[in-house]
Amino acid sequence: MPETVNGIAFFLLAFATIGGAVMMLSTRNVVHAAFWLLETMLATAGLYLLLDAEFLALVQVLVYAGAVSVLVLFTIMLTLRRREDAVRPFEPGWGGMALAALFGGAMLVAISRAQLPAAKLPEAPPTVADFGRVLFTQWAVPFEIASLVLLVALVGAVWWSGGDRR
């Protein structure tokens, strides 16, 4: 019974993820595209949840769905001069198509060559405390480097945007 439920949930979420991504690319309205992106992020969080990755799912919702998509929407709405500008024409060019084909081919090759790790879930899903312990012992240096990179990006963005003095 639980496995059937999980299977159904997986198919629904997978459909929502891929469908959301397709809709995001095919819609002509930039605001709608931003909302489809949000839907894709939420569905991805659901997939994480199915794998018992509770913390990852929550952070995905909090950071990507809750914060990043608000920033995206905010930027889109601030830069739209008129409401009608939200709908953009679709103008495919040969350059863009070639680039897409190249990227698609590269991804296909990469995925078919990749050595996927044998899918084996641990007996009991690791708790948040386990996750924290590993993050701050085994992965402390990469974690610190990542935070440093983010800090530099933040300071750089503030400096770049200037403020009143420049």
């Binding site: 509770e54 909090l62 769905a65 708790t127």
Partner: peptide
Amino acid sequence: LDAGLLYTFAALSLVPIGILMAGWASA
């Protein structure tokens, strides 16, 4: 939930997006 506090905040963090959606959709 192991991270119940984080869960509640994550759920509440989605509310303003709905508000923004309502604000934009109303024209």
